[in-house]
């Protein structure tokens, strides 16, 4: 996509809320989708560029949510500062996780990161005096203000998440076009070859992991502010967060700039509608449908939506091209 198209897309995204009820159901779904698109973009730095299938990003996400919320509850510190603190902790956690997992490949890396996030979930469930345990935490609401990152209209959150998505995407683009991006791709394509030409593969992977972990933690704060309530399973859960983020990027198109957005716009509404339509039918039916969809996606479109969209676009532009040439002759 060119700069101009991207600019138009952002303008379009800014205008959408004007057509929707400011506190309605649809804008809430879009807000959630934007948040997950941002999470997907942060994951993309590790999963897409470095080619490491992390299934442990919930660790950073939850860390961010808990850090800012605990600072707010106990010390009245603004979530903006809490978000920065969470970001720092997320970066440190990502660094610590890198040490044992850096050399792992494929399945082993996925399993190691998955276990890492589970450690956090168990701790959050057990250390009740700090985290409130399985009961969870409520974010205290004072008054709607930007300084406290609290609003009474979903529309404001929509813009917040849009800004977050654009910001994370810009970081992604900067990394892709910069030195780190080239090195990451070298590491992904051939770690041994990269090592030979002088890339410190371990360091490059750690850099990517720290940036990704830190961003994910900051987005955890935004989630806490949006939802006002969370418990260990919703922010540290493997299915709820880690696997969902990875799924969104893979469905949308791994390693691409617009993949996370495409994926989030498909998966999040799908989940929501499945929930609404099937939740009161029978316990488990909506989850069952979700699981079946997950399997269907893997079996039908393993390369992701972005690939599908690319093929479609190629076919359309191909037709336009051929009709142009026909017109000329």
């Amino acid at each position: 996509m060119t700069m101009r198209q991207t600019f138009l897309l952002i303008c379009f995204a800014t205008l959408i809320p004007l057509a929707l009820e400011p506190n309605g159901y649809y804008i809430r779904i879009l807000t959630l989708a934007l948040l997950f698109a941002a999470l997907g973009q942060a994951w993309n730095i590790v999963g897409g560029l470095a080619g490491q299938m992390s299934l442990g990003h919930a660790a950073f996400f939850g860390l961010g949510a808990y850090t800012s919320t605990l600072l707010l509850i106990h010390f009245g510190i603004s979530p903006w500062i809490g978000m920065l603190a969470g970001g720092v902790l997320g970066g440190i956690a990502a660094f610590l996780l890198s040490l044992p997992t850096m050399r792992l490949k494929g399945h082993y890396f996925a399993l190691g990161t998955l276990a890492f996030a589970e450690v956090f979930r168990v701790i959050a469930n057990t250390w009740s005096s700090l985290t409130g345990g399985p009961v969870g935490l409520s974010v205290p609401f004072s008054e709607p203000s930007l300084a406290m990152l609290q609003f009474n209209e979903t529309r404001s959150y929509y813009y917040l998440m849009l800004a977050a998505f654009v910001a994370v995407s810009m970081i992604f683009v900067i990394i892709v076009q910069g030195r780190l991006g080239y090195r990451l791709r070298a590491v992904k394509e051939g770690p041994d070859a990269a090592e030979v030409i002088g890339v410190n593969t371990t360091r490059v992977k750690i850099h990517a992991a720290v940036i990704s972990g830190s961003l994910t933690a900051m987005l955890g704060t935004l989630y806490a502010q949006l939802n006002f309530f969370f418990d260990p399973d919703t922010v540290f859960g493997a299915l709820q967060i880690s696997i969902r983020i990875a799924l969104i990027v893979i469905v949308g198109g791994i390693g691409t700039l617009f993949g996370p957005l495409l994926g989030a716009l498909l998966i999040i509404p799908l989940e929501e509608f499945a929930n609404v339509m099937l939740a009161d039918r029978a316990a488990g039916l909506s989850q069952l449908t979700y699981g079946a969809l997950l399997m269907a996606i893997v079996l039908l479109q393993p390369q992701g939506l972005a690939e599908f969209a690319k093929k479609l676009a190629a076919r359309i532009s191909g037709k336009v091209m051929s009709s142009k040439t026909e017109a000329r002759t």
Binding site: A110, I243, I250, G284, L285, L294, I297, L299
Partner: peptide, 28 residues
């Protein structure tokens, strides 16, 4: 069988999907 040659991550999602289906199928 269809995902034996697919990337590791597709296999993960397929079996996670199966996990969700079986767990909730049992609940139903």
């Amino acid at each position: 069988q269809r995902v034996l040659k697919a990337p590791a991550v597709s296999q993960v999602f397929l079996t996670v999907g199966l996990l969700i289906v079986m767990e909730n199928g049992a609940l139903l």
